[in-house]
Write a protein that binds this DNA or RNA. Structure first.
Lengths: 104, 104
DNA sequence: GCCATATATAAGCGATTGCTTATGTGACGG
DNA sequence: CCGTCACATAAGCAATCGCTTATATATGGC
């Protein structure tokens, strides 16, 4: 299940923090690591999880790998929440559409 | 972190399925169990996780405990996604407001 | 009171998580 | 080339997960 991988990736607070930093600005691994008190491999492993879920994309440039958030990959989360829209008005539709429009 | 507990609760596919069934209809544990191929304690443990995250509420009636989904508890998920609204138009605001209006 | 029913909790177990240290891989600068 | 830098991968480990079986806690019917 695709949603499982995304929810699982976001379930870790460090990983959400990584995503948040990458949403603010594209960054290479060393720059990213600066904000956290964990080892470089730990960061790489978190990035691998986010990458597998499609939540971040990488761009290799020489020795550096630049990562950025891919907010379009959050669509399944909104989709899932949206399935319970019968509980509330269907204004949620708009968000779903916006995310769909972002697809590359 | 509150979001962590919610994301973690939703990260398990069985738990999401439980939530989905409880979103469709209030149900006691035995009725709920009928739809799954796992033991009664396993269901109770999933319900405990969902309950701890505030995603479901219980109503005891005699020997039975009836559970129902509490969609308002999904608000932090929408909130979190919404934090990246700078990537997309701010129509997301409306969803946040709707969820806030649902609070008991 | 006594027994069955409905659910929760405890205990135990293999699988998975998130971290660490160690090592690999590839690109740059001398 | 050769050493260093940027990053990924491997291996190992304690903690946590999701499940099981066993047991506790209520409630209801007799």
């Amino acid at each position: 299940m695709m949603e499982t991988e995304i929810f699982r990736a976001l379930a870790d607070p460090t990983r959400r923090a990584v995503y948040e930093r990458l949403a603010a600005a594209e960054m290479n691994v060393s720059e990213l690591r600066a904000g956290f008190a964990i080892s470089q491999p730990a960061i790489s492993q978190h990035l691998a999880a986010l990458r597998a879920a499609g939540l971040v994309t990488e761009r290799r440039q020489g020795r550096f790998t630049y990562y950025r958030a891919n907010p379009a990959a959050l669509a399944p989360v909104v989709d899932w929440v949206e399935r319970y829209r019968n509980f509330w008005p269907k204004r949620v539709e708009s968000l779903k559409q916006v995310l769909k429009d972002m697809e590359p």
